[in-house]
Simulated assay, not measured.
Amino acid sequence: MKASMNLPAIIQTLSENQLLISEFSLVEPLDIRGIVADSRQVQPGMLFVAIPGLTYDGHHFIDQAIRNGAVIVVGEQPNIEISVPYIQVADSRRALAMLSAAWHGFPARKMTVIGVTGTDGKTTTCNFIYHILKAAGIAVGMISTVNAIIGEESLDTGFHVTTPEAPQIQGLLSKMAFRKPTPITHVVLETTSHGLAQHRVAGCEYDIGVFTNITHEHLDFHGT
Score class of each variant (00 low, 15 high):
122 K>Y: 08
157 T>E: 13
147 N>K: 13
30 L>G: 09
106 F>I: 05
124 T>S: 14
13 T>G: 04
145 T>I: 04
23 E>F: 06
122 K>Q: 07
152 E>L: 08
168 Q>G: 11
61 F>H: 15
121 G>Y: 04
45 G>S: 00
5 M>W: 00
204 C>R: 03
146 V>P: 05
136 A>N: 14
171 G>I: 02
133 L>V: 01
95 A>E: 09
72 I>Q: 08
221 F>W: 15
137 G>F: 02
217 E>V: 03
89 V>H: 09
134 K>A: 12
104 H>C: 12
202 A>I: 06
67 R>P: 02
41 Q>D: 04
107 P>F: 01
167 P>R: 01
19 L>P: 05
96 L>F: 00
23 E>K: 12
172 L>Q: 11
177 A>F: 00
211 F>A: 01
74 V>H: 05
222 H>E: 13
46 M>L: 03
67 R>Q: 12
170 Q>M: 15
206 Y>C: 08
186 H>K: 03
51 I>W: 01
22 S>L: 09
58 G>D: 07
140 V>M: 07
142 M>D: 08
139 A>N: 14
48 F>W: 02
1 M>W: 02
196 L>N: 06
165 E>L: 13
95 A>Y: 12
124 T>N: 06
137 G>Y: 05
159 F>M: 14
106 F>C: 12
103 W>P: 14
185 T>V: 02
56 Y>M: 10
118 G>A: 11
98 M>R: 13
42 V>H: 00
67 R>C: 03
105 G>K: 01
77 Q>T: 13
179 R>F: 00
39 S>R: 01
50 A>S: 02
183 P>Q: 10
93 R>I: 03
52 P>M: 06
60 H>D: 15
219 L>P: 00
82 I>T: 14
1 M>I: 05
155 L>P: 03
118 G>K: 09
176 M>P: 15
153 E>F: 02
215 T>D: 14
180 K>Q: 15
220 D>R: 05
215 T>H: 11
75 G>Y: 09
11 I>G: 00
187 V>Y: 11
205 E>Q: 14
206 Y>H: 14
92 S>R: 10
193 S>K: 07
106 F>E: 15
71 V>I: 15
10 I>A: 10
197 A>W: 08
174 S>R: 12
119 T>Y: 05
21 I>A: 01
133 L>P: 10
136 A>E: 06
38 D>A: 06
174 S>N: 12
131 H>T: 11
156 D>I: 03
60 H>R: 14
146 V>A: 14
206 Y>L: 15
117 T>P: 07
189 L>A: 10
27 V>P: 01
19 L>H: 13
14 L>S: 03
19 L>R: 15
50 A>G: 08
24 F>H: 15
58 G>L: 00
173 L>M: 13
39 S>L: 01
64 Q>R: 11
204 C>S: 03
100 S>R: 02
149 I>E: 15
89 V>F: 11
